[in-house]
Design a protein around this nucleic acid. Sequence first.
DNA 1: TTGTACGCGTTATCAA
DNA 2: TTGATAACGCGTACAA
Lengths: 354, 354
Amino acid sequence: MTLESPSIIDVAKKAGVSVATASRVMSGSTYPVSDGTREKVLIAAKELHYVPNSLARSLKAQRSKLIAVLVGDNADPYFAQVARGVEEVANAHGYLTIICNTERDPDRELSYLQTLQDYRADGIIFTGSGSDETSVPEQLEIDAMVEKIQRRGAAIVILSPHSIQAPSIQPDNLGGAYELTSYLISLGHKRIAFVTGPGNVTVANQRLHGYRQALTDSGITPDDTLLLPGNFTQAGGERAAGMLDQFPREKRPTAVFACNDETAFGLMYGLRQRGWRLPEDISICGFGNLPMARMVTPSLTTVNIALRELGRAGAQKILTLLQHQETPTQETFPTTVVKRASTIPLEHTAGVQQ
Amino acid sequence: MTLESPSIIDVAKKAGVSVATASRVMSGSTYPVSDGTREKVLIAAKELHYVPNSLARSLKAQRSKLIAVLVGDNADPYFAQVARGVEEVANAHGYLTIICNTERDPDRELSYLQTLQDYRADGIIFTGSGSDETSVPEQLEIDAMVEKIQRRGAAIVILSPHSIQAPSIQPDNLGGAYELTSYLISLGHKRIAFVTGPGNVTVANQRLHGYRQALTDSGITPDDTLLLPGNFTQAGGERAAGMLDQFPREKRPTAVFACNDETAFGLMYGLRQRGWRLPEDISICGFGNLPMARMVTPSLTTVNIALRELGRAGAQKILTLLQHQETPTQETFPTTVVKRASTIPLEHTAGVQQ
DNA sequence: TTGTACGCGTTATCAA
DNA sequence: TTGATAACGCGTACAA
């Protein structure tokens, strides 16, 4: 019983060959090794239960076989799905996946970038922490860090709008929001409220723009009193429900576009708590098509983003970049409207004179 | 502009000291260094934007500052919450968190253990992949691998029943299920169905035992025709709904205990699809208290497990073990019944003669 | 086809 | 208090 794990030296000794030869066999080098020798080494390795030390290997090779995914919160279903996709592809190619919860805090983001540089992470995937504020004090440092990481040869990919410069795959937030709003309009709705995202997160603003554009294109003037502040959380949705409940009856919107599903869930819950009937009293829709969107009552109309697939695509792009192969700098990821029971025609909405 | 990141040699050169001295300053060693020299090194390091190479450091120190969490699927809210807690504590102590999706497949579990051994992961947290079958062919290999990892000095902690030998923190599944079932009984229910978990996953069986025990203790004979097969997923819950719908009216249960929340969500959805009214036609409860449990309609009665806190506790235990400090081998993690709207007294249930 | 010997970036041991 | 050097385990020029 060996207390220490055996090194390649032990394998070489046991096989009666040099370390170089043993290494060539174990590392799957293309270097020629005679079949007999190869066999001996493999047997020795098996008998010793030899496991190569990835740390040493990485140190030597200047690459770690680590891929990190930076998310706001891995317990948020949106990020969880993306991370799952990343891990799938990473694992299939022999990479480990590191999870980094930034809590949308630039300080934490920067701190993680430092650490990932320390570990010589081969790939870093940003998802969903991008803010409009190009003027956050940390931005300069983050940019510098990113550049440094890229110079080292690591690959960076962003899966949502972000101020940094890197290849990206972006869900079509604007298009999805436009289509979804158009759908509401096609149902007859004109007074459509919008629950915003946190502060100046770009994704949320893209959806807001899509919403506005669709209204304008249909000859409806966007009404800013119908903009309710949210923050991508259920709690934010519940607060919006409270505000909605305060509207004078004649000014009430007949539909609400919550800028993500979580918000829509909270909104539905909050409205029902206050005695509203859904969808009779108001149509509601979200964005993201989380697994629960189908399950809630009424089932939620929303915009589908194939999140797991997005994660997979992101990881693939990292791998492609690491192989110095060509890949588009900017890719758009399609979104599609999913029509369900939470949105109904205006004429079926309660309190609407036919 | 340097293309390569500077090493400690560069720092030493620039500061005009030896590598040893530079290292002593940078690594925060307790070794005495004169203030002047220390200053010089720190300035040089700052100017060069020196970042220590964690790989080399780990290789030398024989520890990686990596903590891995093995989960069935990180997109499952249960695991996502636990992983979040792990990451919080890990990050606060300078560790990176690696996510490993085993898909409950022993082969993948084994493969990941190998890789984690390669990387000299300092801590490994198992959560929720434990099965009753001690006879899976891989079990022997997994046991051997685990022992090897522990011999190396790495810490292993399990957060759910698992066949391997390691310190554990176990949610009180049996107690929670017992209490929850007792609550249903106190509402007057006698015909209580149970939707099981996948195959022979121990967690699910613990909950089943709690359910049975509570029935027996109340003088109700458990009826195996009320056991519906599930698999911890929404789809499983939907299937169970189909089976429930087939029951002859007089044999219908008046309440269902779904052995996790996901299953309960699917069950509620499936029943409603078939025209059932909830909770009037049947009381439903789950297990886990996921964030969505409160938001569904009707809000779900369930058993709370402080999952994020469980993850935190697991990571803490890892840290404690790594410092060779005392920590209980077996800890129980409390669970509490959360009463909500999805369960009602028997006499309020439709079709029940008063 | 095989072996020798060095370097990857740190830290620890020893000597000065 | 400081410096030279070995070691961690691996891969690879270069030599044989």
